[in-house]
Amino acid sequence: MDVFMKGLSKAKEGVVAAAEKTKQGVAEAAGKTKEGVLYVGSKTKEGVVHGVATVAEKTKEQVTNVGGAVVTGVTAVAQKTVEGAGSIAAATGFVKKDQLGKNEEGAPQEGILEDMPVDPDNEAYEMPSEEGYQDYEPEA
């Protein structure tokens, strides 16, 4: 019985440690998101679009440190934060509304985080759909 109880105690310690790591990862992701939003706020009209992409990228980098179902929630929060940063930029006159959601080359930025393969159960990952990809044929 002692062996059984000791095993359960060790398992509990492992769960607590994993929860603490997840909590730490979420806190880091939130900190990076805040950094990115402050970065966007300090940019001029020309830099705002690039700044919004930076927020998304920093958040995406930190999301990889967070495991399990938390990833889905962090990704949703990050996307809403990026959308909010863009709205703030438009409201303050840093950028025109028609410039939001495009990178410096004018290509749409939507789907940055949505296409990231995420499995809350950590069982399997699927690649994003290939609808947006084109076949590449090298020139002879």
Rank of each mutant, 00 (worst) to 15 (best):
E20C: 12
G93S: 06
N65A: 07
T59K: 01
K6D: 03
G73L: 13
V52Q: 01
V118N: 12
V26M: 15
E137D: 09
K21C: 03
K97S: 10
S87D: 09
V63Q: 01
G31M: 15
G67Q: 08
T64D: 04
A27N: 08
E61T: 04
V52T: 01
V48R: 01
G67P: 02
E105W: 02
P138F: 11
I88N: 02
K10V: 14
P138E: 04
K32T: 02
A140Q: 05
P128A: 09
G25H: 15
P128Y: 06
T92W: 15
T54W: 12
K45D: 00
E35W: 13
M127D: 05
K96T: 13
V63D: 01
E126N: 12
V77I: 14
E126D: 11
M127H: 07
D135H: 09
Y133P: 12
V3W: 02
E137F: 08
Q62Y: 11
T64S: 08
K10R: 13
P120N: 06
K45A: 10
Y39R: 08
V77T: 03
D2M: 05
E123S: 10
D119K: 02
V82D: 02
D98A: 04
T75S: 09
E114H: 07
T22W: 15
E114L: 09
E131G: 04
Q99M: 13
A30W: 08
S42L: 13
K97V: 15
K45V: 12
V118G: 10
Q62G: 04
T64Q: 09
G14R: 13
T92G: 08
E110A: 10
E105F: 12
V70E: 01
Q24I: 13
A76D: 03
G7V: 13
A53D: 02
E105R: 14
V37H: 00
V118C: 13
A11G: 02
K34N: 01
T44Q: 01
V3C: 03
D98K: 08
Q79E: 04
K6A: 09
P128M: 12
V77W: 15
A17R: 07
T72W: 08
L100T: 06
V49G: 04
M5I: 00
L38I: 03
Q79D: 03
E131F: 05
D2R: 01
K32P: 01
G51D: 01
E35T: 11
E46M: 12
A91R: 05
K60R: 09
Q99P: 02
Q109W: 06
S9V: 10
E104S: 06
P128K: 05
P128C: 05
V95S: 07
A78L: 13
Y133N: 09
E123I: 09
A140T: 13
V66W: 14
H50M: 14
D115N: 07
V77Y: 12
E139M: 06
L38E: 03
